[in-house]
Design a protein around this nucleic acid. Structure first.
Lengths: 239, 239
DNA sequence: TACCAATCGGAGGAAATAGTCCATTTACTC
DNA sequence: GAGTAAATGGACTATTTCCTCCGATTGGTA
């Protein structure tokens, strides 16, 4: 395995000025992704970092590489939110505060919000954190169900649906009604309580959810590299 | 008032070939908006219609004009869905089937889905239909609340939140899990039932919802015309 | 038929974005 | 302090999309 930019000791072996620029790029990208999402123009990142476009592209050959480097730490923190909620004794409090906290993150940081809804292609380093996060989500749900405080017919993929919904509200109402997402989350949490509810339509399968996340990544300019000779025909809805 | 293209007898007075082309443009736009949303490239509409870009722009000087002409009828039909649900005797059935039907429309037609979430600037003709639709939505909600089958703390703006959520799910999972939206709608409907629910965070005010819809329209390339000397500074998140 | 105003269509300018290239500059090594 | 490989940055190409302009064409009429 080649030591890439996203290796733990990232950027080791770079010349001092290169290392400095790398850091400035990461900081600029962090802020710009936060404001505009992970599909923000990279030229703008370069400009804000005070480097040329060439420098940015040499350091991070693809948007995926940059996004991974920028959010490496945050991704782990989000998994941490899930694991922390699991340490909460009350299963309902754990489940509900997890959802509230993660949705708050999405509302406050558009880049992280994007990241929670997509699957990075070949996400070498970040894969571990994503894996931990997914497991924490599923554990939170199952624990709450076993305790009888969440309806039994929910599956982990429903959390993905919740996050998609929350992200959309947060994006759309960010300026006009910055707290609208809280209301949606409260309503969704209500709908999670067990009760006299009829049968639900089928949830997405894990595979379907993963494919949706992957397709979403592509719309954000995070397509996998290589793929030589890609036809790249963009038909109507990409199906 | 000048007789514009979107006058009831649209296109009256045009030469025969111009009228024919106008129709072909509308049909092409209808299909392309359905597949890709109302922000699809107009050049593609022209190409599919088999006319030059100039012809399209002469006939419909702005994207707004084209969108209005294309969806004039559908907009009225959507208001009709609401009014039809009001004629349903059971307030809950009316409310829930309205939501299901309108969400189904959004899932099946991305253009209409877009349209339901935004406010067209100066929507001359379509304003009436939108007005009817909003009133029907509010009436459905209030009637269900008076009958005690929907919790009292919901407001009409919550329906907007529901539609935003549904639109996001529909878009994101359209290929991978085409029926996922049904599950979200079912969950949201559950959350509308009255019960032992705690207080909800504040809903967007009508003004806030309207502003969100308007801002959303702008991101779809549906900005109002004129506005001479517009500064047009696009800062980070447009706030 | 013949005329002309209405219409056409596509060439092309402008803006935004992605990604490459290379002449110049600079940090490290000896 | 000089040499060299690394690093730089912005000019440049390509692409996409919007929108305008104008010479060529054609429908409707006399």
């Amino acid at each position: 395995m080649v030591a890439t930019e996203s290796t733990p000791i990232a950027g080791r072996g770079l010349r001092a000025d290169a290392l400095r620029n790398r850091q400035r790029i990461l900081e600029a990208a962090r802020r710009i992704f936060e404001e505009r999402g992970v599909d923000a123009p990279l030229d703008e990142v370069a400009e804000r970092a005070g480097v040329g476009a060439g420098t940015l592209y040499r350091r991070f050959p693809s948007r995926v590489a940059l996004v991974e480097a920028v959010f490496e730490q945050e991704l782990a923190e989000m998994a941490g939110i899930g694991e922390e909620a699991l340490r909460c004794e009350d299963p309902w409090v754990g489940f509900s505060t997890y959802l509230e906290r993660i949705c708050a993150v999405m509302a406050a940081d558009r880049g992280l919000g994007d990241l929670l809804l997509l699957k990075l292609p070949a996400s070498g380093e970040s894969a571990g954190a994503c894996e931990r996060h997914s497991r924490a989500q599923a554990d939170l749900l199952v624990r709450a169900q076993k305790a009888g405080v969440v309806r039994d017919d929910l599956v982990p993929e429903d959390i993905f649906l919740f996050l998609v919904a929350n992200g959309a509200i947060a994006r759309l109402t960010h300026c006009a009604a910055p707290h609208a997402w809280r209301r949606l989350v409260a309503l969704l949490l209500d709908s999670c309580r067990p009760g006299r509810n009829g049968p639900l339509p089928a949830a997405p399968t894990p595979l379907q959810a993963a494919r949706a996340q992957q397709e979403h990544a592509e719309t954000k300019g995070l397509r996998a590299v290589s793929c030589e000779g890609s036809g790249d025909q963009r038909d109507g809805r990409g199906c």
